[in-house]
Amino acid sequence: MAPAASEEKNPVPNLTPQFLYGVKKGVNGGLNFLGDNLLMYPAGSGIAKVSTERYSQEIISLANKGKEITAVALNPTRKLIAFSEYGERPLVIIYDVELERKRKILRCPELKSFEIISLAFSHDSKYLLAQENK
């Protein structure tokens, strides 16, 4: 059966956000400079990377749609970002800034809380500390 003429003329547009404004309050470590012209902050249900040089913004999405960010950490070399998601089993996402991709998603079944309230990288970035809210 052929689609109706009205369906062909009015396709559903695919909308993608161009800019998210506002910094989400209550996020530990929420605002970071990745370089002289690159700013990172939680916005909506993702992380916004804003270039002040090119006047552009990129959104790093969470692993689970609709969740919220509770903590953010930047490693000492400013090449890795770690951020945590609120949820029954909170998780931590490690994002590589240079390669622009998620490097690792960490899950910890021992956590008894719904949120991780603080994240911190070690001085050599070999370890990541996550503190839960009890």
Rank of each mutant, 00 (worst) to 15 (best):
A71P: 01
N32S: 14
A71I: 08
E53V: 01
I69N: 07
N75Q: 02
K65S: 12
R78N: 10
A48P: 00
E58G: 02
G44A: 14
R54H: 15
P76T: 03
L38P: 01
S45N: 05
L38S: 06
F33S: 15
T77Q: 12
S56F: 02
L34M: 00
N32W: 06
G46E: 08
Q57E: 14
T77Y: 04
A48M: 01
M40H: 07
A73D: 14
L31I: 09
N37F: 12
S61A: 15
I69L: 12
N64A: 14
S56D: 11
G66K: 10
E58W: 00
E58V: 02
V72W: 03
L31Y: 05
K79E: 07
R78Y: 10
N75C: 10
K67L: 06
T77R: 10
L31H: 00
N32L: 04
L74V: 04
A73P: 02
K65M: 10
N64Y: 10
N37A: 09
S56C: 00
R78V: 14
K49A: 05
V50P: 07
R54F: 09
V72R: 01
K49N: 05
A48S: 04
I60R: 06
A43C: 08
L80D: 13
I81P: 08
V50E: 08
I81C: 13
L74C: 07
Y41W: 09
A73C: 08
I60S: 02
Y41H: 05
Q57N: 11
T70M: 08
R54Q: 10
M40K: 04
L34D: 05
I60T: 02
E53N: 05
M40G: 12
A48E: 04
R54N: 15
S56V: 05
I47L: 11
I81K: 07
T52P: 04
L31Q: 09
R78P: 00
T77W: 04
N37S: 14
A43Y: 07
L34G: 00
Q57C: 09
E58K: 02
A63T: 05
S61E: 11
K67S: 08
S51H: 13
G35H: 09
L31A: 11
A48W: 03
I60D: 06
G35K: 13
A73I: 00
T77H: 07
E53G: 01
S56P: 08
K65N: 05
Q57S: 12
I69P: 04
M40S: 13
D36S: 09
D36R: 11
T70L: 03
G66R: 12
K65R: 10
L34A: 00
I59Q: 01
N64D: 15
L80R: 08
I60E: 04
P42E: 03
N37K: 15
T70Q: 01
I59T: 09
K65C: 12
T52I: 00
G46N: 10
S61T: 11
L62C: 08
G66N: 13
L62R: 14
L74Y: 00
T77E: 09
A73Q: 03
K49F: 04
Y41G: 03
